[in-house]
Amino acid sequence: MKRFWAWAAFLAGLAYMVLPLIGMSEFSLKMRRGVYSLDAYASVLNDPKFQETFAFSVTMAIFTILFGVLLVVPTAYWVRLRLPRLRPYVEFITLLPLVIPAIVVVFGYIRLYNTSSWLPMTGSTLGTNILLMFGYSMLSLPYMYRAVDTGLRTLDVATLTEAAQSLGAGWGTILARVILPNVLVAVLSGAFLTFAIVIGEFTMAALLNRPAFGPYMQLLGANRAYEPAALAVIAFAITWACMGLIQLVTRLSKHTRVQN
């Protein structure tokens, strides 16, 4: 009997998650009257706006990840190595993006960096893009920092650093050749989460008026019937692909296959 209820609860939960997805997917295939077709997908994928915004968001995601890695890995490493007492504070700072809404942050950015400020970043396309990248980095900070810090926890950072130093390595070499390769799986999982966040982000991109994928999804959703459903399925597939890649990379990483 117990088993029955366990299964019932599981199936109810599954239905709650899966039914809307099935409904949406089914709807996305119904653009042509009376038959199932991929017309909605074709329409979305052929839309130059889709390609343009998706390419923009992917580029932004790549830069955000690079900046995030350069910022977070050395910071988390240094905090673990030399400033362990600061860890609670650094963790608190990295968690702030979860409690401060993006809209608050972006209004702050616009106030601070508008064209009449001392650093008029919104005055040029490049400046605005850089500002957007900083915003994205901040949004992904909780995930990136946590992932890297967890990765570092599995290492004896202090002893590995000293071993490398005694063999003649400087800080750059230690970070690039010893620390980063050993937290690569953690960095990648942080990177894929960052990718998913950047692809779906709406508020910052919309308010900074950049042609990103999030605002495009919103625009399409407001004006079309079948295409938004197709777009949602595509976005969903991208997210799942990211998750799959995290798993794949974790498994392919040779030296972590068996942990001692």
Partner: peptide
């Protein structure tokens, strides 16, 4: 001198081999 300038070899209790290599 910094540790990496001294040319002194060290072996640690915890081995400290680089796991990725």
């Amino acid at each position: 001198q910094r540790p990496n300038q001294r040319n002194i070899g060290m072996v640690f209790q915890a081995y400290a081999l680089f796991p990725n290599m």
